[in-house]
Protein backbone atom coordinates (compact mmCIF):
# COMPACT_ATOMS: atom_id res chain seq x y z
CA UNK A 1 0.00 0.00 0.00
CA UNK A 2 2.42 2.70 1.15
CA UNK A 3 5.36 1.44 -0.78
CA UNK A 4 7.82 3.89 0.71
CA UNK A 5 7.42 3.27 4.40
CA UNK A 6 6.50 -0.41 4.57
CA UNK A 7 10.21 -1.30 4.59
CA UNK A 8 10.56 0.54 7.91
CA UNK A 9 7.83 -1.40 9.66
CA UNK A 10 8.72 -4.10 12.19
CA UNK A 11 8.61 -7.35 10.14
CA UNK A 12 6.57 -8.96 12.91
CA UNK A 13 3.64 -6.76 11.94
CA UNK A 14 3.78 -7.69 8.28
CA UNK A 15 2.36 -10.55 6.29
CA UNK A 16 3.69 -11.74 2.94
CA UNK A 17 1.54 -13.63 0.48
CA UNK A 18 3.02 -17.15 0.35
CA UNK A 19 2.08 -17.44 -3.33
CA UNK A 20 3.35 -14.17 -4.82
CA UNK A 21 5.43 -12.49 -2.09
CA UNK A 22 3.27 -9.33 -1.94
CA UNK A 23 3.79 -7.54 1.35
CA UNK A 24 1.02 -6.17 3.59
CA UNK A 25 0.54 -4.86 7.07
CA UNK A 26 -1.22 -7.68 8.91
CA UNK A 27 -4.51 -6.47 10.31
CA UNK A 28 -7.31 -8.57 11.70
CA UNK A 29 -10.21 -8.20 9.24
CA UNK A 30 -13.58 -7.09 10.57
CA UNK A 31 -16.40 -9.42 11.52
CA UNK A 32 -17.25 -11.79 8.68
CA UNK A 33 -14.52 -10.43 6.44
CA UNK A 34 -11.46 -12.02 4.90
CA UNK A 35 -8.16 -10.50 3.94
CA UNK A 36 -7.04 -11.58 0.49
CA UNK A 37 -3.93 -10.77 -1.52
CA UNK A 38 -4.65 -7.84 -3.83
CA UNK A 39 -2.45 -9.29 -6.54
CA UNK A 40 -3.09 -13.04 -6.71
CA UNK A 41 -6.27 -13.24 -4.58
CA UNK A 42 -4.90 -15.88 -2.21
CA UNK A 43 -6.83 -15.82 1.07
CA UNK A 44 -4.41 -14.56 3.71
CA UNK A 45 -6.46 -14.11 6.87
CA UNK A 46 -9.95 -15.51 7.42
CA UNK A 47 -10.79 -15.65 11.10
CA UNK A 48 -14.09 -16.96 12.39
CA UNK A 49 -15.71 -16.43 15.73
CA UNK A 50 -15.05 -19.20 18.24
CA UNK A 51 -13.30 -21.19 15.53
CA UNK A 52 -10.89 -22.71 18.06
CA UNK A 53 -13.55 -24.66 19.93
CA UNK A 54 -15.17 -25.86 16.72
CA UNK A 55 -11.84 -27.00 15.27
CA UNK A 56 -11.04 -28.95 18.43
CA UNK A 57 -14.46 -30.60 18.37
CA UNK A 58 -14.02 -31.50 14.70
CA UNK A 59 -10.55 -32.92 15.32
CA UNK A 60 -11.84 -35.05 18.20
CA UNK A 61 -14.66 -36.34 16.00
CA UNK A 62 -12.17 -37.13 13.25
CA UNK A 63 -10.03 -39.07 15.68
CA UNK A 64 -12.99 -41.22 16.77
CA UNK A 65 -14.14 -41.77 13.20
CA UNK A 66 -10.71 -42.85 11.93
CA UNK A 67 -10.33 -45.35 14.77
CA UNK A 68 -13.89 -46.58 14.23
CA UNK A 69 -13.40 -46.91 10.50
CA UNK A 70 -10.28 -49.00 11.13
CA UNK A 71 -11.98 -51.50 13.47
CA UNK A 72 -15.43 -52.02 12.01
CA UNK A 73 -16.13 -53.81 8.73
CA UNK A 74 -15.97 -51.46 5.83
CA UNK A 75 -17.44 -53.21 2.82
CA UNK A 76 -19.14 -56.56 2.49
CA UNK A 77 -19.23 -58.67 -0.62
CA UNK A 78 -21.26 -61.76 -1.43
CA UNK A 79 -21.51 -64.01 -4.46
CA UNK A 80 -22.82 -67.54 -4.78
CA UNK A 81 -22.80 -68.08 -1.04
CA UNK A 82 -19.26 -66.80 -0.52
CA UNK A 83 -19.12 -63.79 1.77
CA UNK A 84 -16.18 -61.56 2.58
CA UNK A 85 -15.81 -58.58 4.88
CA UNK A 86 -13.06 -56.05 4.53
CA UNK A 87 -11.99 -53.44 7.03
CA UNK A 88 -10.19 -50.26 6.13
CA UNK A 89 -6.94 -51.82 7.29
CA UNK A 90 -7.51 -54.83 5.03
CA UNK A 91 -7.80 -52.48 2.08
CA UNK A 92 -4.73 -50.52 3.12
CA UNK A 93 -2.66 -53.66 3.60
CA UNK A 94 -3.95 -55.53 0.58
CA UNK A 95 -0.79 -55.19 -1.47
CA UNK A 96 1.21 -58.06 -0.08
CA UNK A 97 4.27 -59.71 -1.42
CA UNK A 98 7.43 -58.21 -2.84
CA UNK A 99 7.65 -54.60 -3.92
CA UNK A 100 3.90 -54.09 -3.57
CA UNK A 101 4.38 -54.15 0.21
CA UNK A 102 5.79 -50.62 -0.10
CA UNK A 103 2.49 -49.62 -1.64
CA UNK A 104 0.61 -51.11 1.30
CA UNK A 105 2.61 -49.01 3.71
CA UNK A 106 2.07 -45.88 1.60
CA UNK A 107 -1.68 -46.44 1.34
CA UNK A 108 -1.91 -47.06 5.11
CA UNK A 109 -0.11 -43.79 5.71
CA UNK A 110 -2.27 -41.82 3.28
CA UNK A 111 -5.67 -43.00 4.46
CA UNK A 112 -5.13 -43.86 8.15
CA UNK A 113 -1.91 -42.57 9.69
CA UNK A 114 -1.76 -39.07 8.21
CA UNK A 115 -5.42 -38.17 8.98
CA UNK A 116 -4.97 -39.64 12.47
CA UNK A 117 -1.73 -37.74 13.08
CA UNK A 118 -3.25 -34.47 11.89
CA UNK A 119 -6.23 -34.85 14.22
CA UNK A 120 -3.98 -35.62 17.20
CA UNK A 121 -1.61 -32.75 16.43
CA UNK A 122 -4.51 -30.31 16.07
CA UNK A 123 -5.89 -31.26 19.47
CA UNK A 124 -2.47 -31.13 21.12
CA UNK A 125 -1.48 -27.79 19.60
CA UNK A 126 -4.76 -25.89 19.69
CA UNK A 127 -6.42 -27.49 22.71
CA UNK A 128 -4.53 -25.48 25.34
CA UNK A 129 -4.93 -22.23 23.36
CA UNK A 130 -8.69 -22.62 23.20
CA UNK A 131 -8.84 -22.91 26.98
CA UNK A 132 -6.57 -19.88 27.43
CA UNK A 133 -3.53 -21.83 28.47
CA UNK A 134 -0.02 -21.33 27.14
CA UNK A 135 0.92 -23.23 24.01
CA UNK A 136 2.30 -26.72 24.75
CA UNK A 137 6.00 -27.48 24.24
CA UNK A 138 7.02 -27.82 20.62
CA UNK A 139 3.67 -26.46 19.44
CA UNK A 140 5.13 -24.39 16.60
CA UNK A 141 7.14 -27.27 15.14
CA UNK A 142 4.27 -29.71 15.51
CA UNK A 143 1.79 -27.38 13.81
CA UNK A 144 4.33 -26.90 11.01
CA UNK A 145 4.48 -30.68 10.70
CA UNK A 146 0.71 -30.93 10.53
CA UNK A 147 0.66 -28.30 7.77
CA UNK A 148 3.29 -30.19 5.77
CA UNK A 149 1.15 -33.31 5.97
CA UNK A 150 -1.97 -31.62 4.65
CA UNK A 151 -1.68 -32.57 0.95
CA UNK A 152 -0.87 -36.17 1.93
CA UNK A 153 -4.09 -36.73 3.82
CA UNK A 154 -6.19 -38.56 1.24
CA UNK A 155 -9.25 -39.83 3.11
CA UNK A 156 -11.69 -38.07 0.80
CA UNK A 157 -10.06 -39.55 -2.30
CA UNK A 158 -10.28 -43.01 -0.79
CA UNK A 159 -14.00 -42.46 -0.14
CA UNK A 160 -14.62 -41.69 -3.80
CA UNK A 161 -12.52 -44.76 -4.60
CA UNK A 162 -15.05 -46.86 -2.67
CA UNK A 163 -17.85 -45.61 -4.86
CA UNK A 164 -15.90 -46.49 -8.00
CA UNK A 165 -15.04 -49.94 -6.62
CA UNK A 166 -18.70 -50.49 -5.89
CA UNK A 167 -19.67 -49.95 -9.50
CA UNK A 168 -16.71 -51.92 -10.80
CA UNK A 169 -17.73 -55.16 -9.12
CA UNK A 170 -21.47 -54.61 -9.46
CA UNK A 171 -21.86 -57.31 -12.10
CA UNK A 172 -19.35 -59.61 -10.41
CA UNK A 173 -20.85 -59.81 -6.95
CA UNK A 174 -23.18 -58.10 -4.54
CA UNK A 175 -21.56 -55.36 -2.49
CA UNK A 176 -22.84 -53.58 0.61
CA UNK A 177 -21.51 -50.92 2.95
CA UNK A 178 -20.60 -51.71 6.55
CA UNK A 179 -20.83 -49.23 9.45
CA UNK A 180 -17.23 -48.14 8.94
CA UNK A 181 -18.04 -46.87 5.49
CA UNK A 182 -20.50 -44.36 6.91
CA UNK A 183 -18.02 -43.38 9.60
CA UNK A 184 -15.51 -42.76 6.89
CA UNK A 185 -17.97 -40.73 4.83
CA UNK A 186 -18.57 -38.62 7.96
CA UNK A 187 -14.83 -38.20 8.35
CA UNK A 188 -14.49 -36.84 4.84
CA UNK A 189 -17.25 -34.33 5.47
CA UNK A 190 -15.65 -33.19 8.75
CA UNK A 191 -12.21 -32.86 7.14
CA UNK A 192 -13.56 -30.48 4.54
CA UNK A 193 -15.28 -28.31 7.18
CA UNK A 194 -12.21 -28.46 9.41
CA UNK A 195 -9.97 -27.00 6.72
CA UNK A 196 -12.49 -24.24 6.03
CA UNK A 197 -12.67 -23.16 9.66
CA UNK A 198 -8.97 -23.11 10.28
CA UNK A 199 -7.40 -19.69 9.73
CA UNK A 200 -3.72 -20.54 9.55
CA UNK A 201 -2.47 -17.03 10.12
CA UNK A 202 -4.48 -16.70 13.34
CA UNK A 203 -3.10 -20.02 14.59
CA UNK A 204 0.51 -19.06 13.87
CA UNK A 205 -0.06 -15.71 15.51
CA UNK A 206 -1.64 -17.29 18.57
CA UNK A 207 1.14 -19.85 18.89
CA UNK A 208 3.76 -17.14 18.66
CA UNK A 209 2.23 -14.67 21.07
CA UNK A 210 -0.30 -16.61 23.11
CA UNK A 211 -4.04 -16.03 22.85
CA UNK A 212 -5.01 -12.40 23.39
CA UNK A 213 -2.99 -10.08 25.61
CA UNK A 214 -3.69 -11.98 28.80
CA UNK A 215 -0.83 -14.39 28.43
CA UNK A 216 1.98 -12.47 26.97
CA UNK A 217 4.77 -14.91 26.32
CA UNK A 218 6.69 -13.10 23.62
CA UNK A 219 9.57 -15.55 23.71
CA UNK A 220 9.02 -16.66 20.09
Amino acid sequence: MHSTDIAQVDPGELIACPQCDALYRARMPGHGERATCARCHTVLIAPRKRAGMIIIALAAAQLILVLGAVWFPFLKISRQGFVNNATLLDAALSFTGGPLLVLSLAVTALIVLVPLARAILTIYVLGPLVFDRPAPPGALRLFAMSEEMRPWSMAEIFALGCAVALVKVADLAHLSFGPAFWMFAGLVFLTVIHDRWMCRWSVWQALEHGYGARRDKATA
Partner: peptide, 24 residues
Protein backbone atom coordinates in the same frame (compact mmCIF):
# COMPACT_ATOMS: atom_id res chain seq x y z
CA UNK B 1 -2.90 -33.82 -8.46
CA UNK B 2 -3.82 -35.82 -5.37
CA UNK B 3 -7.03 -37.06 -6.97
CA UNK B 4 -5.11 -39.27 -9.38
CA UNK B 5 -4.47 -41.56 -6.43
CA UNK B 6 -8.06 -42.79 -6.74
CA UNK B 7 -7.19 -45.63 -9.10
CA UNK B 8 -4.63 -47.01 -6.66
CA UNK B 9 -7.23 -46.93 -3.89
CA UNK B 10 -9.78 -48.70 -6.08
CA UNK B 11 -7.25 -51.49 -6.69
CA UNK B 12 -6.56 -51.69 -2.94
CA UNK B 13 -10.26 -51.93 -2.09
CA UNK B 14 -10.97 -54.53 -4.76
CA UNK B 15 -7.99 -56.64 -3.75
CA UNK B 16 -9.00 -56.67 -0.10
CA UNK B 17 -12.62 -57.33 -0.86
CA UNK B 18 -12.86 -59.68 -3.79
CA UNK B 19 -11.37 -62.81 -2.27
CA UNK B 20 -14.19 -65.30 -2.71
CA UNK B 21 -12.41 -68.62 -2.93
CA UNK B 22 -13.30 -70.20 -6.24
CA UNK B 23 -15.97 -67.75 -7.31
CA UNK B 24 -13.82 -64.71 -7.93
Amino acid sequence: GRWSMIDVFVVAILTALVQLNLAA
